[in-house]
Simulated assay, not measured.
Amino acid sequence: MEDLVNQLKVQIIKALKLEDVKPEDINPTAPLFGDGLGLDSIDALELIVLLEKEYGLRVENAASAKKIFSSIKSMADYISEHKKA
């Protein structure tokens, strides 16, 4: 799980072009939106694309998206639960 969390940190930094952020700067349980990493709705779309391209997972609705993208740990949990073997 720790490997997946670290992999997600790197992928998010790359996908969102967060040049000032290093993987070790991101707390895996900190919120991605608002006070945490400070992402916005455009970033949310990028995260959805990331999940689809890298992990083959689709986000079905806004309610589940809010839960999935609350933190890097919640994303990792979702990927672990739904990834096809």
Rank of each mutant, 00 (worst) to 15 (best):
M1T: 05
E2N: 07
E2K: 06
D3Q: 14
D3R: 09
L4N: 04
V5I: 15
N6H: 08
Q7H: 12
Q7D: 15
L8T: 02
K9H: 04
K9N: 09
V10K: 13
V10M: 10
Q11A: 11
Q11Y: 07
A15C: 01
L16V: 00
K17Y: 04
K17S: 08
L18S: 03
L18D: 06
L18I: 00
V21C: 15
V21N: 10
P23Q: 15
E24K: 13
D25F: 06
I26Y: 07
N27S: 10
P28A: 10
P28L: 03
A30L: 02
P31I: 01
D35E: 08
G38R: 05
G38I: 02
L39A: 10
L39S: 11
D40N: 15
D40V: 03
D43N: 13
A44K: 06
L45W: 04
L45P: 08
E46L: 09
E46D: 09
E46I: 03
I48L: 09
V49P: 00
V49R: 07
L50T: 04
L50M: 13
L51S: 07
L51A: 05
E52I: 02
E52K: 15
K53R: 15
E54D: 15
Y55M: 14
Y55L: 14
Y55A: 14
Y55N: 13
Y55I: 12
G56Y: 15
L57A: 12
R58L: 15
E60W: 03
E60Q: 05
N61Y: 00
A63D: 05
A63W: 03
A63K: 01
A63P: 00
A63I: 00
S64R: 01
A65L: 04
A65P: 00
A65V: 00
K66C: 03
K66E: 14
K67W: 01
I68T: 04
S70R: 12
S70P: 07
S70H: 13
I72M: 08
K73N: 14
K73H: 11
M75P: 02
M75Y: 07
A76W: 04
A76D: 05
I79K: 13
I79C: 13
I79P: 15
I79Y: 12
S80Q: 13
S80G: 14
E81Q: 08
E81F: 06
E81M: 07
H82I: 02
H82V: 03
K83P: 06
K84Y: 06
A85M: 06
